[in-house]
Design a protein around this nucleic acid. Sequence first.
DNA 1: TGGATACCATCTGGAAATCAGATAGATGAA
DNA 2: TTCATCTATCTGATTTCCAGATGGTATCCA
Lengths: 291, 291
Amino acid sequence: MNLQQLDILLAVVAAGSFSAAARKLGKVQSAVSTAISELEIDLNLQLFDRSGRYPKLTEAGARIVQQAQLVRQQCQQLTELAADLAGGLETRFCLAVDDEGQLPWLAPVLAELSAQFPKLELQVLFPLLEDLTLMLERGDADLGICFQPQQLPEQFLRWPLQQLQFAAAVSTAHVLATLAEVTTADLQQHRQLMVTGRGESLEKQRGRLSSQVWWLEGDIAVLALVEQNLGWAWLPLHVLQPAMLQGKIKLLPINSEPAQLPLQLELWQLRDKTPGPAGLWLRQRLLQLKG
Amino acid sequence: MNLQQLDILLAVVAAGSFSAAARKLGKVQSAVSTAISELEIDLNLQLFDRSGRYPKLTEAGARIVQQAQLVRQQCQQLTELAADLAGGLETRFCLAVDDEGQLPWLAPVLAELSAQFPKLELQVLFPLLEDLTLMLERGDADLGICFQPQQLPEQFLRWPLQQLQFAAAVSTAHVLATLAEVTTADLQQHRQLMVTGRGESLEKQRGRLSSQVWWLEGDIAVLALVEQNLGWAWLPLHVLQPAMLQGKIKLLPINSEPAQLPLQLELWQLRDKTPGPAGLWLRQRLLQLKG
DNA sequence: TGGATACCATCTGGAAATCAGATAGATGAA
DNA sequence: TTCATCTATCTGATTTCCAGATGGTATCCA
Protein backbone atom coordinates (compact mmCIF):
# COMPACT_ATOMS: atom_id res chain seq x y z
CA MET A 1 0.00 0.00 0.00
CA ASN A 2 1.07 3.49 -0.80
CA LEU A 3 0.35 7.09 0.02
CA GLN A 4 0.16 7.91 -3.67
CA GLN A 5 -2.42 5.20 -4.21
CA LEU A 6 -4.53 6.68 -1.43
CA ASP A 7 -4.19 10.16 -2.92
CA ILE A 8 -5.25 8.85 -6.27
CA LEU A 9 -8.16 7.01 -4.70
CA LEU A 10 -9.36 10.18 -3.03
CA ALA A 11 -8.90 12.16 -6.23
CA VAL A 12 -10.98 9.63 -8.14
CA VAL A 13 -13.73 9.80 -5.54
CA ALA A 14 -13.67 13.59 -5.70
CA ALA A 15 -13.54 13.80 -9.49
CA GLY A 16 -16.02 11.04 -10.26
CA SER A 17 -13.98 9.17 -12.85
CA PHE A 18 -10.46 7.86 -13.42
CA SER A 19 -9.94 10.14 -16.42
CA ALA A 20 -11.11 13.27 -14.63
CA ALA A 21 -8.88 12.44 -11.67
CA ALA A 22 -5.95 11.94 -14.03
CA ARG A 23 -6.53 15.35 -15.60
CA LYS A 24 -6.75 16.96 -12.20
CA LEU A 25 -3.59 15.22 -11.00
CA GLY A 26 -1.68 16.02 -14.19
CA LYS A 27 -1.19 12.35 -14.98
CA VAL A 28 -2.22 9.97 -17.70
CA GLN A 29 -5.42 8.02 -17.32
CA SER A 30 -3.56 4.73 -17.42
CA ALA A 31 -1.56 5.72 -14.35
CA VAL A 32 -4.74 6.24 -12.38
CA SER A 33 -6.28 3.07 -13.68
CA THR A 34 -3.31 0.92 -12.73
CA ALA A 35 -2.87 2.65 -9.38
CA ILE A 36 -6.45 1.84 -8.40
CA SER A 37 -6.10 -1.69 -9.74
CA GLU A 38 -3.00 -2.30 -7.69
CA LEU A 39 -4.54 -0.79 -4.59
CA GLU A 40 -7.43 -3.20 -5.05
CA ILE A 41 -4.96 -6.05 -5.33
CA ASP A 42 -3.03 -4.89 -2.27
CA LEU A 43 -6.16 -4.59 -0.15
CA ASN A 44 -7.70 -7.68 -1.72
CA LEU A 45 -10.91 -5.71 -2.18
CA GLN A 46 -12.92 -4.38 -5.07
CA LEU A 47 -13.20 -0.66 -4.48
CA PHE A 48 -15.11 0.35 -7.62
CA ASP A 49 -17.91 -1.12 -9.64
CA ARG A 50 -16.83 -0.56 -13.25
CA SER A 51 -19.89 -2.00 -14.96
CA GLY A 52 -21.27 1.40 -15.87
CA ARG A 53 -19.85 4.33 -17.77
CA TYR A 54 -18.50 5.90 -14.58
CA PRO A 55 -16.84 3.86 -11.83
CA LYS A 56 -18.95 3.63 -8.72
CA LEU A 57 -17.62 3.09 -5.20
CA THR A 58 -18.60 -0.23 -3.69
CA GLU A 59 -19.79 -0.24 -0.06
CA ALA A 60 -16.44 -1.62 1.04
CA GLY A 61 -14.78 1.04 -1.08
CA ALA A 62 -16.71 3.74 0.73
CA ARG A 63 -15.49 2.47 4.11
CA ILE A 64 -11.92 2.36 2.81
CA VAL A 65 -12.24 5.92 1.52
CA GLN A 66 -13.25 7.11 4.98
CA GLN A 67 -10.19 5.49 6.51
CA ALA A 68 -7.98 6.78 3.69
CA GLN A 69 -9.10 10.30 4.48
CA LEU A 70 -8.00 9.82 8.09
CA VAL A 71 -4.59 8.64 6.91
CA ARG A 72 -4.30 11.66 4.65
CA GLN A 73 -5.25 14.01 7.46
CA GLN A 74 -2.56 12.60 9.72
CA CYS A 75 0.00 12.93 6.93
CA GLN A 76 -1.12 16.50 6.41
CA GLN A 77 -0.64 17.17 10.11
CA LEU A 78 2.80 15.66 9.93
CA THR A 79 3.92 17.91 7.09
CA GLU A 80 2.38 20.94 8.79
CA LEU A 81 4.17 20.09 12.01
CA ALA A 82 7.41 19.68 10.08
CA ALA A 83 6.93 23.06 8.43
CA ASP A 84 6.23 24.69 11.80
CA LEU A 85 9.30 23.09 13.36
CA ALA A 86 11.42 24.01 10.35
CA GLY A 87 10.18 27.57 10.84
CA GLY A 88 11.69 27.51 14.31
CA LEU A 89 8.59 26.69 16.37
CA GLU A 90 9.53 25.54 19.83
CA THR A 91 9.05 21.81 20.28
CA ARG A 92 8.03 22.51 23.82
CA PHE A 93 7.44 25.84 25.51
CA CYS A 94 7.44 26.21 29.27
CA LEU A 95 5.87 29.23 30.91
CA ALA A 96 6.66 29.66 34.58
CA VAL A 97 4.19 31.77 36.57
CA ASP A 98 4.76 32.87 40.16
CA ASP A 99 1.57 31.54 41.70
CA GLU A 100 -1.49 30.12 40.03
CA GLY A 101 -3.48 33.07 41.37
CA GLN A 102 -2.45 34.72 38.09
CA LEU A 103 -4.44 32.25 36.01
CA PRO A 104 -7.70 34.23 35.77
CA TRP A 105 -6.15 36.99 33.65
CA LEU A 106 -3.60 34.67 32.04
CA ALA A 107 -5.91 31.94 30.78
CA PRO A 108 -7.47 34.04 27.97
CA VAL A 109 -3.99 34.83 26.65
CA LEU A 110 -3.17 31.12 26.64
CA ALA A 111 -6.37 30.54 24.66
CA GLU A 112 -5.12 33.01 22.07
CA LEU A 113 -1.75 31.29 22.07
CA SER A 114 -3.45 27.97 21.40
CA ALA A 115 -5.28 29.45 18.42
CA GLN A 116 -2.12 31.06 17.09
CA PHE A 117 0.13 28.01 17.51
CA PRO A 118 -2.09 24.94 17.47
CA LYS A 119 0.82 22.51 17.25
CA LEU A 120 2.78 23.99 20.15
CA GLU A 121 3.30 21.74 23.16
CA LEU A 122 2.80 24.07 26.11
CA GLN A 123 3.76 23.52 29.72
CA VAL A 124 2.62 25.93 32.44
CA LEU A 125 4.21 25.61 35.88
CA PHE A 126 3.79 27.63 39.06
CA PRO A 127 7.13 27.79 40.83
CA LEU A 128 7.38 30.44 43.54
CA LEU A 129 10.03 33.06 44.19
CA GLU A 130 13.54 31.67 43.77
CA ASP A 131 12.19 28.38 42.39
CA LEU A 132 11.11 30.33 39.32
CA THR A 133 14.44 32.06 38.74
CA LEU A 134 16.16 28.70 39.13
CA MET A 135 13.98 27.15 36.44
CA LEU A 136 14.69 30.02 34.06
CA GLU A 137 18.42 29.81 34.73
CA ARG A 138 18.51 26.07 34.11
CA GLY A 139 16.54 26.46 30.88
CA ASP A 140 13.70 24.37 32.31
CA ALA A 141 11.40 27.31 31.66
CA ASP A 142 11.47 29.66 28.68
CA LEU A 143 9.51 32.61 30.01
CA GLY A 144 8.66 33.67 33.54
CA ILE A 145 6.00 35.85 35.15
CA CYS A 146 6.90 36.98 38.67
CA PHE A 147 7.03 39.92 41.05
CA GLN A 148 9.75 42.53 40.95
CA PRO A 149 12.39 41.33 43.44
CA GLN A 150 14.30 43.44 45.92
CA GLN A 151 17.70 42.67 44.48
CA LEU A 152 17.69 42.75 40.71
CA PRO A 153 19.31 39.84 38.89
CA GLU A 154 21.63 40.57 35.96
CA GLN A 155 21.22 37.43 33.89
CA PHE A 156 17.60 38.17 32.92
CA LEU A 157 15.87 40.48 30.50
CA ARG A 158 12.88 42.00 32.29
CA TRP A 159 9.74 43.84 31.17
CA PRO A 160 7.10 45.39 33.43
CA LEU A 161 3.56 43.97 33.34
CA GLN A 162 0.59 45.20 35.37
CA GLN A 163 0.68 46.15 39.03
CA LEU A 164 -1.12 43.93 41.51
CA GLN A 165 -2.67 45.35 44.67
CA PHE A 166 -1.89 43.43 47.85
CA ALA A 167 -3.89 43.75 51.01
CA ALA A 168 -3.69 42.28 54.48
CA ALA A 169 -6.62 40.02 55.30
CA VAL A 170 -7.93 37.89 58.16
CA SER A 171 -10.88 35.66 58.79
CA THR A 172 -13.96 37.56 60.00
CA ALA A 173 -13.67 35.44 63.15
CA HIS A 174 -10.17 36.74 63.90
CA VAL A 175 -9.44 39.08 66.82
CA LEU A 176 -7.92 41.65 64.45
CA ALA A 177 -11.20 41.79 62.54
CA THR A 178 -12.86 43.46 65.47
CA LEU A 179 -10.47 46.44 65.52
CA ALA A 180 -11.44 49.62 63.67
CA GLU A 181 -7.80 50.40 62.93
CA VAL A 182 -4.79 48.12 63.01
CA THR A 183 -1.14 49.02 63.67
CA THR A 184 1.92 47.09 62.58
CA ALA A 185 2.42 46.37 66.24
CA ASP A 186 -0.94 44.58 66.24
CA LEU A 187 0.11 42.55 63.23
CA GLN A 188 3.39 41.58 64.81
CA GLN A 189 1.52 39.92 67.65
CA HIS A 190 -0.41 37.50 65.50
CA ARG A 191 0.62 34.63 63.31
CA GLN A 192 1.36 35.65 59.72
CA LEU A 193 0.76 33.23 56.81
CA MET A 194 3.32 33.64 54.02
CA VAL A 195 4.12 32.22 50.64
CA THR A 196 7.31 30.22 50.26
CA GLY A 197 9.14 28.31 47.54
CA ARG A 198 10.78 24.96 48.10
CA GLY A 199 14.20 26.31 49.01
CA GLU A 200 15.44 29.06 51.27
CA SER A 201 15.92 32.67 50.18
CA LEU A 202 15.90 36.21 51.48
CA GLU A 203 13.23 37.20 49.01
CA LYS A 204 10.49 35.31 50.75
CA GLN A 205 10.98 37.36 53.94
CA ARG A 206 9.65 40.46 52.14
CA GLY A 207 6.50 41.74 53.79
CA ARG A 208 7.21 39.82 56.96
CA LEU A 209 6.01 41.64 60.07
CA SER A 210 5.23 38.96 62.59
CA SER A 211 7.81 36.85 64.35
CA GLN A 212 5.56 33.85 64.15
CA VAL A 213 5.10 32.70 60.55
CA TRP A 214 3.64 29.69 58.80
CA TRP A 215 4.96 29.12 55.26
CA LEU A 216 2.75 27.77 52.48
CA GLU A 217 3.40 27.08 48.82
CA GLY A 218 1.00 29.34 46.95
CA ASP A 219 -1.64 32.00 47.48
CA ILE A 220 -4.49 29.52 47.27
CA ALA A 221 -3.14 27.57 50.23
CA VAL A 222 -2.51 30.76 52.19
CA LEU A 223 -6.06 31.94 51.55
CA ALA A 224 -7.46 28.58 52.66
CA LEU A 225 -5.69 28.87 56.00
CA VAL A 226 -6.70 32.50 56.40
CA GLU A 227 -10.30 31.37 55.96
CA GLN A 228 -9.70 28.75 58.65
CA ASN A 229 -8.68 31.60 60.96
CA LEU A 230 -5.10 30.40 61.34
CA GLY A 231 -3.51 33.83 60.85
CA TRP A 232 -3.37 36.95 58.75
CA ALA A 233 -1.67 37.35 55.34
CA TRP A 234 -0.75 39.72 52.53
CA LEU A 235 -2.53 38.51 49.40
CA PRO A 236 -3.37 39.94 45.96
CA LEU A 237 -6.77 41.63 45.90
CA HIS A 238 -8.12 39.47 43.10
CA VAL A 239 -7.30 36.36 45.13
CA LEU A 240 -9.11 37.80 48.16
CA GLN A 241 -12.18 39.04 46.34
CA PRO A 242 -14.31 35.84 46.15
CA ALA A 243 -13.83 35.03 49.86
CA MET A 244 -14.55 38.67 50.73
CA LEU A 245 -17.82 38.63 48.81
CA GLN A 246 -18.81 35.49 50.69
CA GLY A 247 -18.10 37.30 53.96
CA LYS A 248 -15.49 34.79 55.05
CA ILE A 249 -12.62 37.24 55.35
CA LYS A 250 -12.06 40.95 55.97
CA LEU A 251 -9.39 43.43 54.84
CA LEU A 252 -7.38 45.03 57.63
CA PRO A 253 -7.40 48.86 57.83
CA ILE A 254 -3.77 49.69 58.66
CA ASN A 255 -3.08 53.10 60.17
CA SER A 256 0.45 54.09 59.38
CA GLU A 257 0.67 52.82 55.79
CA PRO A 258 -1.79 52.44 52.90
CA ALA A 259 -4.14 49.55 53.34
CA GLN A 260 -3.21 48.38 49.85
CA LEU A 261 0.34 47.66 48.83
CA PRO A 262 1.07 47.58 45.08
CA LEU A 263 3.56 45.07 43.67
CA GLN A 264 4.94 45.19 40.15
CA LEU A 265 4.48 42.06 38.03
CA GLU A 266 7.28 41.41 35.53
CA LEU A 267 8.05 39.24 32.52
CA TRP A 268 11.44 37.53 32.64
CA GLN A 269 13.59 35.75 30.12
CA LEU A 270 17.15 34.49 30.18
CA ARG A 271 19.34 37.18 28.58
CA ASP A 272 21.29 34.94 26.18
CA LYS A 273 18.37 32.80 25.01
CA THR A 274 16.74 33.51 21.65
CA PRO A 275 13.05 32.67 21.85
CA GLY A 276 11.16 30.94 19.05
CA PRO A 277 8.07 32.36 17.34
CA ALA A 278 5.68 31.24 20.07
CA GLY A 279 7.86 32.79 22.76
CA LEU A 280 8.09 36.03 20.82
CA TRP A 281 4.36 36.14 20.23
CA LEU A 282 3.54 35.44 23.85
CA ARG A 283 5.99 38.09 25.08
CA GLN A 284 4.56 40.70 22.74
CA ARG A 285 0.97 39.78 23.65
CA LEU A 286 1.65 40.00 27.37
CA LEU A 287 3.33 43.39 27.01
CA GLN A 288 0.52 44.89 24.94
CA LEU A 289 -1.93 43.53 27.52
CA LYS A 290 -0.44 45.95 30.02
CA GLY A 291 -1.19 49.01 27.90
CA MET B 1 7.27 12.08 1.92
CA ASN B 2 6.74 8.38 2.01
CA LEU B 3 5.23 5.65 4.12
CA GLN B 4 8.39 3.64 3.81
CA GLN B 5 10.46 6.54 5.05
CA LEU B 6 8.22 6.77 8.11
CA ASP B 7 8.52 3.03 8.70
CA ILE B 8 12.27 3.28 8.49
CA LEU B 9 12.26 6.27 10.82
CA LEU B 10 10.27 4.33 13.40
CA ALA B 11 12.49 1.29 12.97
CA VAL B 12 15.58 3.42 13.56
CA VAL B 13 14.07 4.92 16.70
CA ALA B 14 13.16 1.46 17.95
CA ALA B 15 16.50 -0.14 17.08
CA GLY B 16 18.71 2.73 18.20
CA SER B 17 20.92 2.93 15.11
CA PHE B 18 20.66 2.96 11.34
CA SER B 19 22.59 -0.28 11.01
CA ALA B 20 20.51 -2.13 13.57
CA ALA B 21 17.33 -0.90 11.90
CA ALA B 22 18.66 -2.10 8.56
CA ARG B 23 19.35 -5.55 9.95
CA LYS B 24 15.90 -5.71 11.49
CA LEU B 25 14.26 -4.56 8.24
CA GLY B 26 16.33 -6.94 6.12
CA LYS B 27 17.86 -4.07 4.17
CA VAL B 28 21.30 -2.63 3.65
CA GLN B 29 22.52 0.12 5.94
CA SER B 30 22.87 2.52 3.04
CA ALA B 31 19.18 2.17 2.26
CA VAL B 32 18.28 3.27 5.77
CA SER B 33 20.81 6.08 5.72
CA THR B 34 19.56 7.53 2.44
CA ALA B 35 15.93 7.08 3.44
CA ILE B 36 16.43 9.11 6.61
CA SER B 37 18.49 11.67 4.72
CA GLU B 38 15.78 12.14 2.15
CA LEU B 39 13.08 12.34 4.77
CA GLU B 40 15.08 15.08 6.43
CA ILE B 41 15.33 16.89 3.11
CA ASP B 42 11.60 16.45 2.44
CA LEU B 43 10.63 17.76 5.87
CA ASN B 44 13.38 20.37 5.84
CA LEU B 45 14.32 19.29 9.34
CA GLN B 46 17.23 17.58 10.99
CA LEU B 47 15.78 14.53 12.72
CA PHE B 48 18.98 13.01 14.12
CA ASP B 49 22.13 14.32 15.71
CA ARG B 50 24.89 12.21 14.14
CA SER B 51 27.81 13.70 16.02
CA GLY B 52 28.13 10.70 18.32
CA ARG B 53 28.60 7.01 17.72
CA TYR B 54 24.87 6.41 17.73
CA PRO B 55 22.41 8.78 16.07
CA LYS B 56 20.33 10.69 18.58
CA LEU B 57 16.85 12.08 17.93
CA THR B 58 16.67 15.86 17.95
CA GLU B 59 13.78 17.49 19.82
CA ALA B 60 12.06 18.24 16.54
CA GLY B 61 12.73 14.66 15.49
CA ALA B 62 10.98 13.41 18.61
CA ARG B 63 7.86 15.43 17.79
CA ILE B 64 7.92 14.11 14.23
CA VAL B 65 8.24 10.55 15.48
CA GLN B 66 5.11 10.99 17.59
CA GLN B 67 3.16 12.16 14.56
CA ALA B 68 4.66 9.43 12.40
CA GLN B 69 3.36 6.86 14.83
CA LEU B 70 -0.13 8.28 14.44
CA VAL B 71 0.15 8.02 10.66
CA ARG B 72 1.32 4.42 10.98
CA GLN B 73 -1.57 3.58 13.29
CA GLN B 74 -4.10 4.92 10.82
CA CYS B 75 -2.46 2.96 8.01
CA GLN B 76 -2.55 -0.13 10.18
CA GLN B 77 -6.24 0.46 10.78
CA LEU B 78 -6.79 0.82 7.07
CA THR B 79 -5.14 -2.50 6.26
CA GLU B 80 -6.99 -4.20 9.11
CA LEU B 81 -10.27 -2.77 7.88
CA ALA B 82 -9.44 -3.95 4.37
CA ALA B 83 -8.67 -7.44 5.67
CA ASP B 84 -11.93 -7.52 7.61
CA LEU B 85 -13.91 -6.36 4.59
CA ALA B 86 -12.10 -8.81 2.35
CA GLY B 87 -13.08 -11.50 4.85
CA GLY B 88 -16.70 -10.64 4.20
CA LEU B 89 -17.35 -8.35 7.18
CA GLU B 90 -20.51 -6.37 6.64
CA THR B 91 -19.76 -2.74 5.84
CA ARG B 92 -22.82 -1.83 7.80
CA PHE B 93 -25.03 -4.04 9.90
CA CYS B 94 -28.54 -3.05 10.83
CA LEU B 95 -30.32 -4.74 13.71
CA ALA B 96 -34.05 -4.07 13.92
CA VAL B 97 -35.60 -4.56 17.36
CA ASP B 98 -39.34 -4.43 18.02
CA ASP B 99 -39.34 -1.81 20.75
CA GLU B 100 -36.48 -0.31 22.68
CA GLY B 101 -37.85 -1.92 25.82
CA GLN B 102 -35.62 -4.85 24.78
CA LEU B 103 -32.44 -2.82 25.26
CA PRO B 104 -31.70 -3.81 28.88
CA TRP B 105 -30.98 -7.43 28.01
CA LEU B 106 -29.73 -6.64 24.50
CA ALA B 107 -27.12 -4.01 25.35
CA PRO B 108 -24.62 -6.46 26.92
CA VAL B 109 -24.76 -8.58 23.77
CA LEU B 110 -24.03 -5.49 21.68
CA ALA B 111 -21.05 -4.80 23.94
CA GLU B 112 -19.74 -8.28 23.13
CA LEU B 113 -20.38 -7.63 19.45
CA SER B 114 -18.35 -4.45 19.65
CA ALA B 115 -15.44 -6.33 21.21
CA GLN B 116 -15.67 -9.11 18.63
CA PHE B 117 -15.97 -6.84 15.58
CA PRO B 118 -14.42 -3.49 16.48
CA LYS B 119 -14.52 -2.20 12.91
CA LEU B 120 -18.18 -3.01 12.30
CA GLU B 121 -20.51 -0.09 11.68
CA LEU B 122 -23.64 -0.99 13.60
CA GLN B 123 -27.08 0.51 13.30
CA VAL B 124 -29.81 -0.36 15.80
CA LEU B 125 -33.36 0.69 14.97
CA PHE B 126 -36.63 0.13 16.77
CA PRO B 127 -39.35 -0.29 14.16
CA LEU B 128 -42.60 -1.75 15.47
CA LEU B 129 -44.75 -4.58 14.15
CA GLU B 130 -45.11 -4.46 10.39
CA ASP B 131 -42.54 -1.63 10.12
CA LEU B 132 -39.93 -4.18 11.16
CA THR B 133 -40.93 -6.84 8.65
CA LEU B 134 -40.96 -4.19 5.95
CA MET B 135 -37.39 -3.15 6.78
CA LEU B 136 -36.21 -6.76 6.67
CA GLU B 137 -37.99 -7.36 3.36
CA ARG B 138 -36.46 -4.27 1.81
CA GLY B 139 -33.01 -5.21 3.02
CA ASP B 140 -32.84 -2.06 5.16
CA ALA B 141 -32.27 -4.28 8.15
CA ASP B 142 -30.20 -7.45 8.31
CA LEU B 143 -31.57 -9.09 11.43
CA GLY B 144 -34.79 -8.55 13.35
CA ILE B 145 -35.95 -9.20 16.89
CA CYS B 146 -39.75 -9.20 17.22
CA PHE B 147 -42.74 -11.00 18.67
CA GLN B 148 -44.20 -14.13 17.12
CA PRO B 149 -46.97 -12.87 14.83
CA GLN B 150 -50.40 -14.38 14.36
CA GLN B 151 -49.96 -15.16 10.71
CA LEU B 152 -46.57 -16.57 9.93
CA PRO B 153 -44.66 -15.05 7.02
CA GLU B 154 -42.95 -17.38 4.54
CA GLN B 155 -40.09 -15.21 3.38
CA PHE B 156 -38.24 -15.24 6.73
CA LEU B 157 -36.09 -17.70 8.62
CA ARG B 158 -37.19 -17.62 12.28
CA TRP B 159 -35.62 -18.77 15.53
CA PRO B 160 -37.27 -18.66 18.97
CA LEU B 161 -35.70 -16.45 21.66
CA GLN B 162 -36.91 -16.02 25.21
CA GLN B 163 -40.53 -15.55 26.25
CA LEU B 164 -41.64 -12.20 27.61
CA GLN B 165 -44.40 -11.91 30.20
CA PHE B 166 -47.02 -9.27 29.48
CA ALA B 167 -49.37 -7.87 32.08
CA ALA B 168 -52.19 -5.36 32.11
CA ALA B 169 -51.40 -2.26 34.11
CA VAL B 170 -53.01 1.03 35.12
CA SER B 171 -52.05 4.05 37.13
CA THR B 172 -52.66 3.63 40.85
CA ALA B 173 -55.02 6.59 40.50
CA HIS B 174 -57.19 4.75 37.94
CA VAL B 175 -60.69 3.53 38.75
CA LEU B 176 -59.72 -0.03 37.78
CA ALA B 177 -56.94 0.03 40.39
CA THR B 178 -59.55 0.05 43.13
CA LEU B 179 -61.15 -3.24 42.05
CA ALA B 180 -60.01 -6.47 43.68
CA GLU B 181 -60.74 -8.40 40.49
CA VAL B 182 -61.17 -7.16 36.95
CA THR B 183 -63.14 -8.72 34.11
CA THR B 184 -62.64 -8.24 30.40
CA ALA B 185 -65.92 -6.41 30.47
CA ASP B 186 -64.37 -3.90 32.87
CA LEU B 187 -61.41 -3.47 30.58
CA GLN B 188 -63.65 -2.92 27.58
CA GLN B 189 -65.18 0.09 29.25
CA HIS B 190 -61.95 2.00 29.70
CA ARG B 191 -59.52 3.50 27.25
CA GLN B 192 -56.77 1.08 26.18
CA LEU B 193 -53.31 2.33 25.26
CA MET B 194 -51.69 0.28 22.49
CA VAL B 195 -48.49 0.10 20.55
CA THR B 196 -48.59 0.90 16.85
CA GLY B 197 -46.21 1.11 13.93
CA ARG B 198 -46.32 3.87 11.34
CA GLY B 199 -48.56 2.03 8.90
CA GLU B 200 -51.77 0.07 9.24
CA SER B 201 -51.89 -3.68 9.90
CA LEU B 202 -54.02 -6.36 11.49
CA GLU B 203 -51.18 -7.40 13.74
CA LYS B 204 -51.40 -4.34 15.90
CA GLN B 205 -54.99 -5.16 16.87
CA ARG B 206 -53.78 -8.18 18.84
CA GLY B 207 -54.65 -7.89 22.48
CA ARG B 208 -57.25 -5.21 21.83
CA LEU B 209 -60.17 -5.39 24.20
CA SER B 210 -61.51 -1.89 24.46
CA SER B 211 -63.36 -0.05 21.75
CA GLN B 212 -61.65 3.17 22.65
CA VAL B 213 -57.94 3.00 21.92
CA TRP B 214 -55.08 5.46 21.78
CA TRP B 215 -52.12 4.33 19.64
CA LEU B 216 -48.51 5.10 20.55
CA GLU B 217 -45.21 4.22 18.96
CA GLY B 218 -43.34 2.17 21.55
CA ASP B 219 -43.73 0.72 25.04
CA ILE B 220 -41.95 3.64 26.68
CA ALA B 221 -44.54 6.07 25.35
CA VAL B 222 -47.39 3.76 26.34
CA LEU B 223 -46.00 3.44 29.87
CA ALA B 224 -45.63 7.19 30.15
CA LEU B 225 -49.32 7.69 29.35
CA VAL B 226 -50.35 4.88 31.68
CA GLU B 227 -48.48 6.68 34.45
CA GLN B 228 -50.39 9.83 33.51
CA ASN B 229 -53.59 7.86 34.12
CA LEU B 230 -54.75 8.11 30.51
CA GLY B 231 -55.75 4.45 30.21
CA TRP B 232 -54.71 0.84 30.76
CA ALA B 233 -52.29 -1.21 28.66
CA TRP B 234 -50.64 -4.58 28.06
CA LEU B 235 -46.93 -4.16 28.60
CA PRO B 236 -43.92 -6.44 29.15
CA LEU B 237 -43.22 -7.04 32.83
CA HIS B 238 -39.66 -5.74 32.67
CA VAL B 239 -40.95 -2.48 31.24
CA LEU B 240 -43.52 -2.18 34.03
CA GLN B 241 -41.21 -3.09 36.89
CA PRO B 242 -39.52 0.27 37.64
CA ALA B 243 -42.81 2.19 37.67
CA MET B 244 -44.36 -0.54 39.83
CA LEU B 245 -41.56 -0.31 42.39
CA GLN B 246 -42.11 3.43 42.54
CA GLY B 247 -45.77 2.81 43.24
CA LYS B 248 -46.91 4.75 40.18
CA ILE B 249 -48.77 1.88 38.53
CA LYS B 250 -50.50 -1.35 39.49
CA LEU B 251 -50.99 -4.70 37.73
CA LEU B 252 -54.62 -5.66 37.08
CA PRO B 253 -55.81 -8.99 38.49
CA ILE B 254 -57.96 -10.41 35.68
CA ASN B 255 -60.43 -13.12 36.55
CA SER B 256 -61.11 -15.25 33.54
CA GLU B 257 -57.53 -15.44 32.18
CA PRO B 258 -54.05 -15.52 33.70
CA ALA B 259 -52.88 -12.14 34.87
CA GLN B 260 -49.74 -12.59 32.86
CA LEU B 261 -49.74 -13.31 29.16
CA PRO B 262 -46.53 -14.78 27.69
CA LEU B 263 -45.39 -13.73 24.22
CA GLN B 264 -42.64 -15.48 22.27
CA LEU B 265 -39.74 -13.30 21.11
CA GLU B 266 -38.19 -14.37 17.81
CA LEU B 267 -35.12 -13.72 15.70
CA TRP B 268 -35.84 -13.06 12.03
CA GLN B 269 -33.79 -12.97 8.89
CA LEU B 270 -34.64 -12.81 5.21
CA ARG B 271 -34.59 -16.36 3.85
CA ASP B 272 -32.48 -15.74 0.75
CA LYS B 273 -29.92 -13.45 2.39
CA THR B 274 -26.53 -14.82 3.40
CA PRO B 275 -25.30 -12.98 6.48
CA GLY B 276 -21.68 -11.91 6.98
CA PRO B 277 -19.51 -12.93 9.91
CA ALA B 278 -20.94 -10.31 12.26
CA GLY B 279 -24.50 -11.35 11.43
CA LEU B 280 -23.66 -15.01 11.96
CA TRP B 281 -21.94 -14.30 15.26
CA LEU B 282 -24.80 -12.16 16.54
CA ARG B 283 -27.40 -14.76 15.55
CA GLN B 284 -25.49 -17.53 17.28
CA ARG B 285 -24.91 -15.42 20.39
CA LEU B 286 -28.59 -14.48 20.66
CA LEU B 287 -29.68 -18.10 20.29
CA GLN B 288 -27.29 -19.39 22.93
CA LEU B 289 -28.52 -16.62 25.22
CA LYS B 290 -31.91 -18.30 25.27
CA GLY B 291 -30.57 -21.63 26.58
C1' DT C 1 48.56 5.70 21.79
C1' DG C 2 47.11 2.30 18.47
C1' DG C 3 44.07 -1.39 17.07
C1' DA C 4 39.45 -3.32 16.81
C1' DT C 5 34.74 -2.62 16.26
C1' DA C 6 30.62 -0.57 15.02
C1' DC C 7 28.76 3.30 13.16
C1' DC C 8 27.32 6.65 9.09
C1' DA C 9 27.68 8.91 4.26
C1' DT C 10 28.45 8.40 -0.41
C1' DC C 11 29.17 6.25 -4.87
C1' DT C 12 27.94 2.87 -8.55
C1' DG C 13 25.96 -0.50 -11.65
C1' DG C 14 22.00 -3.35 -12.20
C1' DA C 15 17.16 -4.48 -11.07
C1' DA C 16 12.66 -2.84 -10.55
C1' DA C 17 9.03 0.27 -10.63
C1' DT C 18 6.87 4.14 -12.97
C1' DC C 19 5.24 6.76 -16.57
C1' DA C 20 3.42 8.61 -21.09
C1' DG C 21 1.44 7.33 -25.03
C1' DA C 22 -1.09 4.17 -28.07
C1' DT C 23 -4.70 0.92 -28.72
C1' DA C 24 -8.90 -1.70 -28.10
C1' DG C 25 -13.30 -2.50 -26.05
C1' DA C 26 -17.51 -0.67 -23.55
C1' DT C 27 -21.08 2.60 -22.16
C1' DG C 28 -24.57 6.03 -22.64
C1' DA C 29 -26.60 10.06 -24.98
C1' DA C 30 -28.21 12.06 -29.31
C1' DT D 1 -26.21 4.03 -35.41
C1' DT D 2 -22.85 7.59 -34.34
C1' DC D 3 -20.11 10.03 -31.29
C1' DA D 4 -17.99 11.38 -27.11
C1' DT D 5 -16.12 9.56 -23.17
C1' DC D 6 -14.97 6.13 -20.35
C1' DT D 7 -11.63 1.94 -18.65
C1' DA D 8 -8.08 -1.81 -19.28
C1' DT D 9 -3.93 -3.23 -21.13
C1' DC D 10 0.40 -3.16 -23.65
C1' DT D 11 5.06 -1.17 -24.64
C1' DG D 12 9.37 1.21 -24.61
C1' DA D 13 11.83 4.87 -22.21
C1' DT D 14 12.77 7.03 -18.08
C1' DT D 15 13.29 7.23 -13.41
C1' DT D 16 13.67 5.39 -9.04
C1' DC D 17 15.31 2.02 -5.88
C1' DC D 18 18.51 -1.14 -3.97
C1' DA D 19 22.60 -4.01 -2.64
C1' DG D 20 27.22 -3.87 -2.24
C1' DA D 21 31.71 -1.55 -1.85
C1' DT D 22 34.45 2.12 0.04
C1' DG D 23 36.06 5.70 3.12
C1' DG D 24 35.64 8.49 7.25
C1' DT D 25 34.48 8.82 12.28
C1' DA D 26 33.25 7.71 17.13
C1' DT D 27 33.99 4.63 21.06
C1' DC D 28 36.14 1.16 23.68
C1' DC D 29 40.01 -1.42 25.33
C1' DA D 30 44.65 -2.98 25.81
